[in-house]
Nucleic acid binder design. Structure first.
Lengths: 228, 228
DNA sequence: CTATGTGAACTCGTTCACAGCT
DNA sequence: AGCTGTGAACGAGTTCACATAG
């Protein structure tokens, strides 16, 4: 299943026996681990931090934080806390955040342009490295320092750039065929901003961000149906 | 908080009079209900639909769909299926989607401008009705058909417009004080696009959309998938 | 004595199988 | 017979309490 993806070369020199990572990490935990990493990086000049302190900064409970961290092994000192730089390193390793990912973006309309210029990606290890659109009026133009390619070139460009992660912000009617094209181009992870149900082959991850849905949930809660 | 969950167990002898929802609806179900509504609205000229058909369109399993719909009462006909217009009406009512919500948007930068112009909101019952920013270079300018107000005017404008839902797309460093200002202005539901942990008083709902986080989860799944 | 690591209880949501209308 | 409605089993994830290490 795992298609070999050539990225930059260099095989990991030491295949060290993992001291720990026996358990599968729940996705909810992964999301929080990313939060802990972000918080720690924003807390400079700190040598050691306790679960209570870090939990407060991240908005979770201490016990839950310790359980989350336990998934990546025992990197805390009992009676002391966690060594910050060690913890950052382990979080980066577990999240795969030790490298910078280059992502493709399909759909350079209203939302797509914002994603292409979103400053929040860079600091978290992501760089929008290729733009695609189907509109002839957009293809060939530049956005920031990138040229907008025709969606038909997705295969050529993604393989040349070794891109395996993509975001799509195209109209719902075009979403499925764009997904198919991306998958055909070797993309294995897709973040979809279009509403609607899309299918991908097994081995490809698809996540959806539905902006209107988030508002609908808020409206529901406000209407008092989910009272506390 | 969620009180004791009284699991089902209605005695047959007790006549049930209220047509309204007796059980609390899980948030995960609410999200799917909104999906069913969207799918149904995109399926015109259809009188009746079965759980199997609707489930296929929404990408869920038939049994799960029936359980979801059961939270809003029994509006299906056994042996037949669901009356589409009745179902749409009930979904709208339960979701609070029978009315159009007017939402405020704080932060009219890169992402904020995209949200202000996002076409997907209108069809789902939301209209961006007020814009705010702290940058003097933006305040007073127009975006679409709205004027950008100074964030200091949030109280005045939100109360005048009776706005109770807001989105914030401001830098992380300003997010908490913007939230505080919105809450002070009577906003009870906030969708936050800034990373970071924010606090709100009880009675106010806060949801977060972290774009970089979604990519990080994808990167994790791609790199270190639980299997081993 | 302090703070971590984790088994175990508990809560919440999903899946299943079948009972109950039409 | 067909399809819905739902109790009950199941599983994932969270919380808790305490054993454990420094």
């Amino acid at each position: 299943m795992a298609g070999q993806v050539v990225s930059g070369g260099a095989a990991p020199a030491v295949a060290r026996l993992a001291p720990t990572t026996p358990r599968p990490i729940p996705e909810a935990t992964v999301a929080r681990l990313a939060t802990y990493l972000r918080v720690l990086l924003a807390e400079p000049g700190r040598a050691v931090i306790s679960s209570t302190e870090l939990a407060a900064l991240a908005g979770v409970k201490p016990a839950g934080l310790r359980k989350d961290l336990s998934y990546l092994g025992s990197y805390g000192r009992r009676g002391v806390g966690y060594q910050v730089d060690t913890l950052i390193d382990q979080l980066r390793r577990s999240l795969g955040a030790h490298q910078a990912y280059r992502v493709a973006l399909a759909g350079v309309g209203n939302l797509g342009q914002a994603l292409a210029g979103y400053a929040g990606f860079a600091g978290r290890g992501f760089k929008v490295a290729a733009l695609f659109d189907a509109d002839p009026g957009r293809v060939g133009r530049r956005l920031g320092d990138l040229m907008i390619h025709d969606i038909a070139e997705v295969d050529q460009v993604c393989r040349a750039e070794a891109i395996t992660i993509a975001m799509i912000a195209v109209p719902e009617s075009a979403a499925q065929q764009v997904v198919d094209a991306l998958v055909g181009a070797g993309v294995r992870s897709i973040l979809n901003f279009a509403p609607g149900f899309l299918t991908v082959p097994s081995g490809v991850e698809l996540r959806r961000v539905d902006l209107a849905l988030e508002l609908q949930i808020l409206a529901f809660l406000q209407a008092g149906k989910g009272r506390s």
